[in-house]
Simulated assay, not measured.
Amino acid sequence: MNHLIVYAHPRKESFNHAILETAVRGLRQKGHEVVVRDLYAIEFQPVISSSEILGGIGEDIEQEQEYLKWADVITFIYPIWWTGLPAIVKGYIERVFTYGFAYRYVNGEQMGLMKGKKAVIINTQGKSHAQYAEMGMDKALLLTSDTGIFEYCGMEVLHHEVFESVPSSDEATRLAWLKQIEEMTSKA
């Protein structure tokens, strides 16, 4: 199976990077093909241009779309910042999941064009699940990412894992979370 991982965290020492390494290792051990698009490492430009809004895309976006076409499963690994996607991930979605590629409208009805693709979302956050639930942000995050982006484009969301209170978590907790990632990738 072909796995594309879209990864976004600027620090190699982050827990997000440990998640990435664990996922890649687990998938490759199971014999899967894996491509990682580290948005910071490739210096992905998240700002959409006026020509892109009108439908003109450059080679960089065509390349990203080729990776998406190739993939059976697309995994997004990123932290929750300001109760949402980091700007670089939001920019990736805006620039790469274009009209006519990821979705379109036919007779006024929206159609997801990425049917048959599976999505896995892995997030870290500074707050606890309880704090986000108290504010209603837990449901808002799922609605905006899972429903509003991935399902909208026709993808099936297989998993959405959120690791909570990461900055204050201890090593044993983090190791247990990485074990969860290992188990998830062993079932991929």
Rank of each mutant, 00 (worst) to 15 (best):
Glu43Asn: 14
Tyr92Phe: 15
Gly58Asn: 12
Glu182Val: 07
Gly112Asn: 09
Gly126Lys: 09
Ile19Gly: 03
Gly100Ser: 06
Tyr105Asp: 04
Tyr132Thr: 10
Ile57Lys: 09
Pro46His: 07
His160Val: 10
Ile121Pro: 01
Tyr40Phe: 14
Tyr105Cys: 03
Ala71Arg: 02
Val73Gly: 00
Tyr152Lys: 09
Phe150Ala: 01
Tyr92Glu: 05
Glu182Ile: 02
Thr124Asn: 02
Asp146Tyr: 00
Gly154Ile: 08
Ile122Glu: 02
Lys127Ala: 14
Glu62Thr: 12
Gln131Ala: 14
Ile93Gly: 04
Ile19Arg: 01
Val96Trp: 07
Gln131Cys: 06
Leu178Glu: 06
Ala188Ser: 12
Ser145Trp: 13
Asp60Trp: 10
Trp70Gln: 11
Glu183Ala: 08
Ile181Gly: 00
Val47Met: 12
Gln110Leu: 15
Ile77Phe: 01
Met137Pro: 01
His3Phe: 00
Gly91Arg: 01
Thr98Pro: 04
Pro46Ala: 06
Asp60Met: 06
Glu164Gly: 04
Glu64Val: 07
Glu62Pro: 02
Ala71Glu: 05
Met135Trp: 02
Glu59Ala: 12
Phe150Ser: 03
Asp138Gln: 06
Val35Ser: 10
Arg174Ser: 08
Glu183Arg: 14
Ile88Asp: 08
Asn123Ala: 01
Arg174Phe: 04
Tyr105His: 13
Tyr132Glu: 11
Val162Trp: 03
Ser50Lys: 06
Val120His: 00
Leu158Arg: 08
Met111Trp: 15
Lys179Trp: 08
Asp170Ala: 09
Leu68His: 10
Glu151Phe: 00
Ser186Asn: 11
Ile74Pro: 00
Ile181Met: 03
Ser50Pro: 01
Met184Phe: 09
Gln125Ser: 12
Glu171Gly: 07
Ser165Asn: 12
Gln110His: 08
Ser14Lys: 12
Tyr132Val: 11
Leu39Tyr: 03
Phe15Met: 10
His32Met: 09
Trp82Leu: 04
Ile42Val: 15
Leu68Thr: 11
Ala71Asp: 03
Asn123Lys: 07
Gly31Arg: 11
Met184Ala: 07
Asn123Tyr: 05
Pro79Gly: 07
Ala41Val: 05
Thr98Ser: 15
Tyr105Trp: 06
Lys69Glu: 12
Lys69Ser: 10
Lys179Ser: 12
Ser51Glu: 15
Lys179Cys: 08
Lys139Cys: 00
Ile122Thr: 05
Met1His: 13
Lys127Met: 14
Thr98Met: 15
Pro79Thr: 02
Glu161Thr: 03
Asp138Val: 05
Glu164His: 14
